[in-house]
Design a protein around this nucleic acid. Sequence first.
DNA 1: CGCAGTTTTGAGGAACTTCAAGTATAGTGG
DNA 2: CCACTATACTTGAAGTTCCTCAAAACTGCG
Lengths: 248, 248
Amino acid sequence: MLQDEKVKSPHECEECPIRHRAVCARCETDELERLEEIKYYRNFEAGQTVIWSGDKMDFVGSVVSGIATLTQTMEDGRTQMVGLLLPSDFVGRPGREGSAYDVVATTDVVMCCFRKKPFEQLMERTPHIAQRLLEMTLDELDAAREWMLVLGRKNAREKIASLLSIIARRDATLNLRPTEGALVFDLPLTREAMADYLGLTLETVSRQISALKRDGVIHLEGKRHVTVPDFSRLMEEAGDDSDGGMFA
Amino acid sequence: MLQDEKVKSPHECEECPIRHRAVCARCETDELERLEEIKYYRNFEAGQTVIWSGDKMDFVGSVVSGIATLTQTMEDGRTQMVGLLLPSDFVGRPGREGSAYDVVATTDVVMCCFRKKPFEQLMERTPHIAQRLLEMTLDELDAAREWMLVLGRKNAREKIASLLSIIARRDATLNLRPTEGALVFDLPLTREAMADYLGLTLETVSRQISALKRDGVIHLEGKRHVTVPDFSRLMEEAGDDSDGGMFA
DNA sequence: CGCAGTTTTGAGGAACTTCAAGTATAGTGG
DNA sequence: CCACTATACTTGAAGTTCCTCAAAACTGCG
């Protein structure tokens, strides 16, 4: 395993793909320099666990590339995904020792990390970091609440449509493609991971995806490559109002 | 209706019951004075709507006493509660125009409010406020994720037990009573509100409460007054590990 | 007392899960 | 290059949970 080696600054912050979306987004050049001094990169392979729930977490960081998940597990094994971490998303919580969740890389992941103590100290001196972190946390809270509606009140078909529309939208904004007309993207999650996100079984996920395909809402090439011919149709299936709220 | 009148400082911040838990918790005396200058109180009656989803929100504030709920509603009327606001909880989001949710007072509520603009300006000059708000938002995010597990993976009985244990715990910490042995509290929610919280129907809520009563997990006097003879038993029923995570 | 709102209880049905095969796809080693 | 295996996915049938619809009981209040 080529795992988890610390790499010192493979690139400059100024050229970083998440420079203007991550926790450092509001930083001025001088603030960025101080961050740069304490940052390091870590690589995780697909399937690798970044941190286990309850483990001591001595770092925080941002996803630079790849996708990771946040999950909770009950004693009897039932698991619920509670967060989907895309590039620029923040991992860890200042002012807390352990991780409250399992964090798992679902694709190969590069993370920009800071040891927690130095980061916390820097945060106290740098309001721009704290401000941005607050903003990002509020966005995540909104997303979590949106997801509570999905989990609590939508049926299986609507849940799948909701997940697809979120992935499609985030993929589109990440790649700066328009969010209208036909959309094409790859599912970054297995059927099981989708089930864990949606509070369903993987069989139900499979059946509903088949049904959406049968009804022409989506097309599939292979198991993961999805084409959405009409995004507003997908939104309807998700039970959302036609316009759709914005996602950061 | 004795509604919604603005009251100027009926009491001093130093004597405020939420002085050390609300967004002002970290403020020094001088910072508190500046907050005090711009604060005002608002009263809401049980059942009254504080703000509608989508409406412009020109204030933020803290619940001083009483209980309010945050809910989302789909076009066809399905509703999901996404937050339960107890004393010291914060309402509103700096840097956003409209409210994303309906906020409704379920009991009589007193709120300590600030007009948004002055509050935002003060926040920029007062790191203690921003720090505390970040801390509270992170706590809320944890609570939301905990709730996602409840909504996605627990059955009806476990959902009810989870809700009861949360209310019992928060009531106990609020009133500084020990969280062990027998607990007594009043349900601040109707069956319908509980259903909206848990993603169930009110009939299922009623049936499961009856079942928990039949099995001796809880005792009821009237419809709302609950006694929990053995809290660890309730936690078991909720499907949580025996110790139980801490809630702020 | 009688009405309105809340809650309980019952019967039947729909949605989703569980259990069980069966199919595809990619990687591995002969 | 191809059988062999592991993993991911699909599909079917039966079972369970929860919802829907309906009616009745309880509570507080004019």
